[in-house]
Amino acid sequence: MTKVAAVMLAMAVVFPIIGQDQASAYSWTRNLQEGSNGADVKELQIRVAGWAADSASRTFVEVDGIFGAGTKAAVKRFQSAYGLTADGIVGPATQAKLNSLEAGDGSTQNFNFSEFYSGDGKGFNGGKVGAATVKENVRRMMYKLEAVRKKAGNTPVQVNSGFRSLQDNAAAGGVANSQHMYGIAADIVLGGYSPTSIANIAKRSGFSGVIIYSTFTHVDSCAEYPYGMQGTWYWP
């Protein structure tokens, strides 16, 4: 073994190479069930938020860290959709499935942060909240969109517009308090699905703002956030 090879081997032992899945996997340290509470319950709620209802329903999964009846029902829907035992208990099998939807950079399996960047090249900057808040809001929305994708037979979701800076929103003709400027809204298209069909899926996936346009569907989570429309359901 050459000296260089020996050094490289030593470095690999001290600093093991971590795969993307290993780096991103959330560290579940216990089984979760109704009555549990804590930061891990909050993360669970973010990940099952798209399974809020069986049919069009003005309800969403409260991200409060308290595992109540609503969270349990969402977990059971998630489990059923992915072929798991639908018992509402978040054990190793459910945790593994939840982690399989992650990506190494904190996004999700089927969505990239760049898909939601402002159209004027500002990334997540220049909105009505800071870039870090926008990124976290987008991450939460991704999990809802993963549910929409799954409910549509794993049909890819095209994001026409995600976050918008104030300037980008003005250029797009957006309303003054557009939820796009907070990173909690997206205009989406699914191949083979009409805007109305997409809206019907979104209405059972925890989205409180659902607007049907001629060529796309707008979805947002306005009722959950204190951005001027908290508690409001807008399903015209």
Score class of each variant (00 low, 15 high):
residue 36 S to V: 02
residue 67 F to A: 05
residue 159 V to L: 06
residue 147 A to M: 06
residue 87 D to L: 13
residue 80 S to G: 14
residue 198 I to W: 08
residue 58 R to Y: 09
residue 91 G to Q: 03
residue 1 M to W: 12
residue 137 N to M: 10
residue 14 V to D: 00
residue 70 G to L: 15
residue 211 I to H: 10
residue 135 K to V: 00
residue 4 V to G: 02
residue 66 I to C: 08
residue 199 A to S: 10
residue 80 S to T: 13
residue 183 G to A: 08
residue 26 Y to M: 02
residue 234 Y to F: 14
residue 227 Y to Q: 09
residue 71 T to W: 14
residue 186 A to C: 11
residue 19 G to C: 12
residue 31 N to R: 09
residue 81 A to L: 09
residue 207 F to M: 06
residue 74 A to Y: 07
residue 21 D to L: 13
residue 34 E to M: 08
residue 107 S to T: 02
residue 11 M to S: 10
residue 21 D to S: 15
residue 229 M to S: 15
residue 74 A to L: 09
residue 105 D to C: 04
residue 4 V to R: 05
residue 54 D to T: 10
residue 87 D to T: 08
residue 117 Y to V: 11
residue 175 V to Q: 14
residue 174 G to T: 11
residue 27 S to G: 06
residue 184 I to V: 13
residue 37 N to G: 09
residue 118 S to T: 15
residue 163 F to Q: 02
residue 229 M to P: 14
residue 166 L to E: 11
residue 59 T to I: 13
residue 15 F to W: 04
residue 106 G to I: 11
residue 150 K to L: 09
residue 128 K to Y: 01
residue 63 V to Y: 12
residue 108 T to K: 01
residue 144 K to E: 14
residue 232 T to W: 13
residue 228 G to N: 07
residue 58 R to M: 10
residue 168 D to I: 13
residue 17 I to K: 04
residue 104 G to I: 09
residue 42 K to Y: 08
residue 216 F to W: 06
residue 60 F to Q: 01
residue 77 R to Q: 08
residue 84 L to M: 10
residue 160 N to P: 05
residue 10 A to L: 15
residue 137 N to E: 09
residue 197 S to R: 13
residue 14 V to Q: 00
residue 217 T to D: 04
residue 183 G to S: 07
residue 104 G to P: 06
residue 193 Y to N: 11
residue 61 V to S: 02
residue 115 E to G: 12
residue 72 K to H: 14
residue 25 A to N: 05
residue 44 L to Q: 05
residue 130 G to R: 03
residue 65 G to P: 02
residue 179 Q to W: 03
residue 65 G to I: 05
residue 138 V to T: 08
residue 190 L to K: 08
residue 47 R to A: 01
residue 123 G to R: 03
residue 62 E to T: 14
residue 56 A to D: 04
residue 78 F to K: 06
residue 38 G to R: 00
residue 222 C to E: 13
residue 145 L to E: 07
residue 95 Q to D: 07
residue 220 D to E: 04
residue 177 N to R: 08
residue 166 L to F: 06
residue 232 T to M: 15
residue 209 G to D: 12
residue 61 V to I: 09
residue 104 G to D: 14
residue 66 I to V: 15
residue 65 G to R: 05
residue 175 V to S: 15
residue 10 A to D: 12
residue 34 E to W: 07
residue 47 R to H: 04
residue 183 G to K: 02
residue 129 V to L: 01
residue 30 R to L: 01
residue 70 G to K: 15
residue 167 Q to M: 08
residue 7 V to Q: 07
residue 161 S to L: 05
residue 120 D to H: 09
residue 135 K to D: 00
residue 194 S to L: 07
residue 41 V to P: 00
residue 178 S to C: 06
residue 216 F to P: 00
residue 158 Q to W: 11
residue 16 P to S: 00
residue 135 K to L: 01
residue 227 Y to H: 11
residue 199 A to C: 10
residue 186 A to D: 07
residue 184 I to H: 10
residue 8 M to C: 14
residue 168 D to Y: 06
residue 151 K to M: 14
residue 97 K to C: 08
residue 179 Q to A: 14
residue 14 V to M: 00
residue 16 P to A: 00
residue 20 Q to F: 12
residue 222 C to W: 11
residue 17 I to E: 03
residue 214 S to C: 01
residue 132 A to G: 08
residue 62 E to A: 15
residue 165 S to R: 03
residue 105 D to L: 02
residue 211 I to C: 09
residue 120 D to I: 14
residue 168 D to G: 12
residue 68 G to H: 10
